[in-house]
Design a protein around this nucleic acid. Sequence first.
DNA 1: TTGAAAGCGCTACCAG
DNA 2: CTGGTAGCGCTTTCAA
Lengths: 340, 340
Amino acid sequence: MKSVPRAQDVANLAQVSQSAVSRTFTPGASVSDDTRRKVLAAAQKLGYRPNALARSLITRRSRIVALVMSYLENQFYPLVIEKLSRKLQAEGYHVLMFISEMDEAADGVLAEILQYQVDGVVMASAMLSESLAQRCSDLGVPVVQFNRISDLRGLARHSASSVTSDNYAGGRLAAKLLVERGYRHIAFLAGLEDSSTSLERERGFVDGLAASGLSVFRRAVGRYRFDGAQEATRELFAQEPPPDAIFAANDHMAIAAMDVLRLELNLEIPRDVGVIGFDDVPEAAWGSYRLTTLRQCVEPMVDATARLLCEQMAAELCPRDVVVPCELIERASIRQRQRG
Amino acid sequence: MKSVPRAQDVANLAQVSQSAVSRTFTPGASVSDDTRRKVLAAAQKLGYRPNALARSLITRRSRIVALVMSYLENQFYPLVIEKLSRKLQAEGYHVLMFISEMDEAADGVLAEILQYQVDGVVMASAMLSESLAQRCSDLGVPVVQFNRISDLRGLARHSASSVTSDNYAGGRLAAKLLVERGYRHIAFLAGLEDSSTSLERERGFVDGLAASGLSVFRRAVGRYRFDGAQEATRELFAQEPPPDAIFAANDHMAIAAMDVLRLELNLEIPRDVGVIGFDDVPEAAWGSYRLTTLRQCVEPMVDATARLLCEQMAAELCPRDVVVPCELIERASIRQRQRG
DNA sequence: TTGAAAGCGCTACCAG
DNA sequence: CTGGTAGCGCTTTCAA
């Protein structure tokens, strides 16, 4: 265990000042080619790497972004971690994970985040309160809410940016499609009652049914959990007459529902019951499910998140809301379009 | 955007020295109750939080642990992120994510990791070379290899600790179980050819079959990918006679195989073909699969990882290897034990 | 372009 | 127990 070399060690070896070493490793600083060469050679020899912490202390930019999530059971979120990390790494940032209990007070997490002097925060946990975002903003730390918004009505100008897919349009489309395929007793399987995603999808869904003169036939709450969704599905089918279709607030719950439908209730999908989900997680494409779903396009969503973050970290830009279109992925969990 | 308060600001307000403020926020430092009260009151009023970066510069401990992964398609890894983050958060550490390309040279990642002065590294990427671990160790940064080991033979004392499940025993048990249930033409679906997990599971499996006078009936490589495993399964069944059982190096591939078996080849599981996986990811329990598998106990594995890391970060302890037992989870993808 | 010097915010070591 | 002082490793003035 040899001690880590400092800039001064490199300077000594290269016979230049420590400042020259610093400049060599600062993009855009003015150093002569000659000096730079000497420094680089010495640095190479010693295995020198600038200490990012010391640098951050001066520049007041840590190049660290906090990512707050609460549970990774839904495969959508791991994909976000992966793609967001890659994206930010490419921009010279790194992701510091904060896993929060679903019911945890925002304050504890906030305190920890702020201690690390993060340059930005991405909140992808469905649960954390608006106050956290508010307080980060007050301190000048940009916040992007991922896949959630804080104020549905948009009355007050909120303090954080947001990136969501067009949940309302997705919900509407789901309704339209199910009606078009001949389903009439259509149930909604809600996620978390107070999550903006579930709420918006339901709003679109209700409006979409209304456009065909229908209303939601039955409704249950799965809380975005597998078990919760299975229980909710049983509820949905406990009374006569049963629904003939389910729109679930996400794929994870839709899949749980399909298992109950087929294995417990002996119903055939899509003949007896049609199912539509939301997200297009990898599992939705698996042969045993072939779930028709509204894809949340992770790539564009993550790109927008990184862009908003970088913009706001660079300048003092106003928070913005980005809405990414959903994409209908039709598979085999609803009846085919009628021919002729 | 008000400026962030520093320790000196708190000291001024509380009418004490800046040192007193520092001590108040240093666990185990000697401060009188009176001083502490004054400081805490002032800190509260200003919303003061110590700057973790400045602290780290002095203490030479960043309380940051790097977590290196390469892909999160296999749901086992998100679980690890979640549990490891929680665990380390509880110990006052935080996880900085590094997503590496599978084929990426270790050097780029290493340089980034070291710049952040992380206190430790967890490598859960199946791909990164041993050299990365070696070099971190040389610099005095403890490394724990998660779910992989570098030197199968253990000839040289390696430079990193490791936490694995008992892959060999698991492989052996899978073989024993399949034979016991009457399967005789048993195929192995390998992960990555050069990953220690796949290799060890296969070794145990081969030995387990040998104990019953059998050998591996056929073998294909799925590279731990869903598509790869589907393709490999088709290969396995392309020749006559077909296998009557598959042991897959992980659940993710086992599930892919089940889809091909049932939906493309019209085979019935477990009657025509038995399937055993490895990991016990949540999907293995889903009603459509009910996969019999060897559980890698994430909780104990993560606990061991955190413990090894903390031990080595605290003292200069030698790297150790921890092997966590697997647990057989029997579901419906192999034939039941014969009665009578 | 370069080197000397002043700190970033904090901890750790003193002497009292 | 307390306050003063040195300095972690670096960036960034400033004068040369």
